[in-house]
């Protein structure tokens, strides 16, 4: 096992878009069902947490509680959409449906397939954000000034979680074992990335940990800032972090998948 097998830049071609198209076509077949969660979830969370729990919470840094968690709901949805698409979703297509095997018998390579899967995962994150912004907007909880910038950022954040999901897909021995990263990584992030209370409420060491190793922290920071209508310089750091880690993990996930599938 040479390290270069994991970090070498894989040869991905524009044909990966065909895999994206395939997944889009499947998505469109069930469009009503697929649009329901991003539409309904923010409403439920905002009613329960924002307006219910929020009554008992003082404003956070001068911001009403509902307004504080609204952008976090988008960030969480970005994480869930692409992570689940590229973990359980990709695993089912790879292992149970043999979709990848069928595709690599055509001029597409396994690298194209994995890249296409991740592009699609990121697209789902973007779709979710796009649906949620107007819903949250209707509650008056988002400043519309920079809100559209959330959409391309949701794609970038989606790519990050797609790559994380795909790395686990590449190494998981079976579909049940994907529960481990969900339980040990995704769920803690959902709770401890400055989503429902500010990071500053945590011990300093854990704050550093969150900034260094919990990707959702950066997604929440950026989307929250944009939803407040503020373009602060601090989000440059977050965007750079996301870009850098996405790049590394995309390369790693494709190489890991090639190792798993090319025999």
């Amino acid at each position: 096992m040479r390290i270069s097998e994991y970090i070498g830049i894989p040869e991905v071609s524009s044909r990966s878009i065909k895999v994206w198209q395939r997944n889009r076509d499947v998505f469109l077949k069930d469009i009503k069902l697929n649009f329901l969660p991003p539409f309904l979830e923010p409403i439920l969370y905002l009613l329960a947490l924002g307006f219910g729990l929020g009554k008992f919470v003082e404003s956070i840094d001068g911001v009403p509680y509902a307004r504080f968690i609204a952008p976090a709901l988008i960030a969480v949805s970005v994480m869930y959409a692409s992570f689940f698409e590229c973990s359980y979703g990709s695993y089912v297509r790879m292992y149970y449906q043999k979709t990848f095997d069928a595709i690599v018998a055509t001029p597409l390579t396994i690298e194209d397939v994995i890249a296409g899967e991740m592009l699609w995962g990121a697209t789902r994150s973007m779709i979710n954000a796009t649906v949620m912004i107007p819903v949250i907007g209707l509650f008056g909880l988002i400043d519309l000034k920079y809100s559209l910038m959330i959409i391309p950022f949701a794609f970038l954040g989606g790519l990050l979680f797609a790559a994380i999901g795909m790395c686990f897909t590449a190494i998981t021995p079976n579909i049940m074992s994907i529960n481990y990263p969900v339980l040990l990584f995704i769920t803690p992030m959902f709770l401890f990335s400055g989503t429902f209370f500010p990071l500053s409420a945590l011990p300093v060491a854990i704050q550093y940990f969150a900034v260094a190793l919990l990707p959702l922290t950066h997604i929440v920071n950026v989307i929250r800032s944009l939803s407040y209508g503020i373009l602060s310089s601090s989000i440059l750091f977050d965007v750079t972090w996301v870009l850098l880690v996405s790049g590394i993990l995309i390369v790693l996930s494709i190489n890991l998948m090639r190792k798993r599938l090319v025999i």
């Binding site: 044909r15 065909k18 198209q21 395939r22 076509d25 499947v26 077949k29 449906q97 043999k98 979709t99 095997d101 069928a102 595709i103 055509t106 001029p107 597409l108």
Partner: peptide, 22 residues
């Protein structure tokens, strides 16, 4: 092994597959 795309119909299977060949 029959690795047909079970998310699609017979016709769609062929159409989606033809796209992989441009």
């Amino acid at each position: 092994e029959n690795n047909l795309d079970m998310d699609f119909t017979v016709y769609e299977n062929l159409l989606v597959y033809s796209r992989y060949f441009d």
